[in-house]
Design a protein around this nucleic acid. Structure first.
Length: 542
RNA sequence: GCCCCGGUAGCUCAGCUGGAUAGAGCAACGGACUUCUAAUCCGUAGGCCACAGGUUCGAAUCCUGUCCGGGGUACCA
């Protein structure tokens, strides 16, 4: 399939060559269809160096253009100096055939062929249920993994958690406190303890399974809590279609000596020192702003240390691409991790860190800080139960990861039936139904059609949008930002609904019906492919 | 204080690697179902793109500063 922008760009470059001008010509979609489909601002860029009016330059270039009329039907120059190009209808019309032939592969590239990628996401420590905050990262990460797979990367989805630190110890203590409370004894609830109701449930379950005579410091409290909470987390993730391939944890890196080895290696580079009872990484020697603690004066390591060992291990596993998805609160930590590894001559180039902003919880118009410890959260499970998976996934994906997201459960539930995801799904279902109706009249989709019959304005604009899909998917890979796909699919659906309102597909005109059936099949393919990557279902009926 | 995000319609957000007239959904108002699904379509209304400078042929978009909100700057994760 000829990539139209590239074609125009080549045409312009050929014209420039004749004028002995070397300059990169950017071609973009025209904002206003009156000017054509694509335009280039090359003349304006040249105005200064050539010391000429951009309009004159544009006209000069235009004369030198050699254009295939079958691809570009007309071209013009408009003030202040745009070169405009209108794509021939016949060119557009034929892409329908090509999309149907490509079907499930339309829009895919081989960028990732033969390459391995690792996407680490969610990675919440098992101290409580997943919240809507985690939901954002979960959906984002899974969708990014899907995008990579779409472009033929071999993807490993990974969940990393800290199970050896302070957090988990406090979790165990919180459970123990509730356990003794239930036995009528004074529970010594830790100051930073986990206050959620689920802690009580876990305590009750421990009593049922292990009796009432456990000692305060029994390991059961922690291990049982971790087990139950993890089961709950995995279950929630599975409900929205997320399955990690690997769960890795901090403890592994203590057990296999990786952490000691890391500290030793850094010490040999003179990057470790002791001060005020703590052990520090000399990050300032690596060009960073301040030194960081590896071991607290209590002897306990900070999360930074195992995280660094973990990343060393990930890099050793030879992935071509390693994606870390962190919330904004972690934005400050990865530079230390990467710098420490670079200091050990480890190439961290495969690592790409994506930071997403937080979900702000609103309760009766007020901001509430979501905290697992204080149990001020809305669980992801709760959200899924009240709306559905498709709504949840789309809800998170339709926002840019850079934007702060306000979340009000009541509002989310009340507005769920207005979620734009239904707009996309409805378009898909409508198409399926029409195809079914066509089949009953022996009209089938074979990709064999008279493209020239697709003349209606709404048909042409539909085809134009279909054509953009590969570019949208390529950009999503480049930017690692799924939102663009959601925006595009919404636009695609809007064009379809408009078409539906102005053109009837199944009529007595056999050839026209066939042509239109093929056209909407192409739309179905694009919607199906796009929704598939978003992890949203494409229903046949609604 | 310093660093990172954000500030666009009443609300939630697109557009941000500079382009021609700033978009969508929700909310509001008015139309369209004897015809393949009205979860749809068509129309009206709604904007000093936070503010002030700068860069240039051209700025919502880039730079600087200010203000507001979120996060970080912890021997929490």
């Amino acid at each position: 399939m000829i990539e139209i922008k590239q074609y125009i760009s080549e045409v312009i470059h050929a014209g420039l060559a004749k004028l002995e001008i070397k300059e990169y010509a950017l071609v973009e979609k025209s904002a206003n269809p009156d000017f054509g489909d694509f335009s280039s601002n090359i003349a304006m860029g040249l105005a200064k160096t050539l010391r000429k009016n951009p309009l004159e330059i544009a006209e000069m270039i235009q004369v030198e253009l050699t254009i295939d009329k079958k691809i570009i039907s007309e071209h013009s120059v408009t003030p202040p100096g745009f070169l405009n190009f209108r794509v021939a209808k016949s060119f557009y019309q034929e892409t329908v055939t090509q999309i149907i032939a490509a079907a499930g592969t339309y829009g895919r590239t081989d960028t990732g062929k033969g390459k391995n990628a690792n996407v680490e996401f969610v990675s919440a420590n098992p101290t409580g249920p997943l919240t809507v905050g985690h939901g954002r990262q979960a959906v984002l990460g899974d969708t990014i993994a899907n995008i990579l797979e779409w472009h033929h990367y071999d993807v490993t989805r990974e969940y990393y958690y800290n199970d050896a630190g302070r957090q988990m110890r406090i979790l165990g203590q919180s459970v123990a406190a509730r356990y003794f409370e239930q036995l009528g004894r004074e529970g010594d609830f830790p100051e930073d303890g986990y206050e959620g109701e689920y802690i009580k449930t876990i305590a009750t379950e421990i009593r049922e399974q292990h009796g009432d005579s456990l000692a305060l410091d029994d390991k059961i409290f922690r291990t049982h809590a971790e087990e139950l909470i993890f089961a709950d987390i995995k279950n929630t993730l599975e409900t929205i279609g997320i399955n990690h391939d690997i769960f890795s944890n901090e403890r592994t890196y203590y057990d296999n000596g990786a952490i000691d080895a890391l500290v030793e290696d850094l010490r040999n580079k003179d990057l470790i020192y002791k001060s005020e009872g703590a052990t520090w990484l000399k990050a300032t020697a690596l060009g960073l702003e301040k030194d960081r603690v590896y071991y607290k004066s209590s002897g306990e390591p900070t999360y930074r240390l195992p995280d660094t060992a973990y990343h060393r291990d990930k890099l050793n596993r030879n992935f071509d691409l390693i994606i870390d998805i962190f919330g904004a609160d972690h934005a400050d930590t990865y530079p230390d991790v990467l710098a420490a590894l670079e200091a050990l001559d480890i190439d961290t180039a495969p690592v790409r860190v994506l930071i997403h902003q937080f979900v702000t919880l609103l309760k009766s118009g007020e901001r509430v800080k979501m905290s697992t410890r204080k149990a001020t959260f809305v669980t992801l499970e709760e959200l899924i139960k009240q709306v559905n998976t498709d709504v949840v996934r789309y809800f998170f994906i339709m926002r840019s990861m850079n934007s702060h997201l306000n979340f009000d459960l009541d509002l989310a539930v009340n507005q769920s039936e207005k979620n734009p995801v239904y707009y996309l799904q409805y378009a898909h279902a409508r198409i399926c139904n029409i195809i079914k109706n066509g089949a009953e009249k022996d009209l089938t989709v074979t990709g064999d059609l008279d493209c020239a019959l697709l003349l209606n304005e709404s048909e042409i604009s539909l085809i134009k949008v279909l054509n953009v899909f590969p570019e949208v998917m390529a950009t999503a890979l480049e930017n690692m930002e799924p939102q663009g796909i959601a925006n595009y699919l919404h636009h695609m659906s809007a064009e379809f609904h408009k078409f539906y309102a102005s053109c009837r597909v199944i009529t007595d005109d056999h050839d026209l019906s066939t042509a239109r059936l093929n056209l909407i099949t192409a739309v179905k393919i694009v919607l199906g492919n796009g929704l598939g990557v978003l992890g949203v279902s494409a229903p046949e009926r609604m």
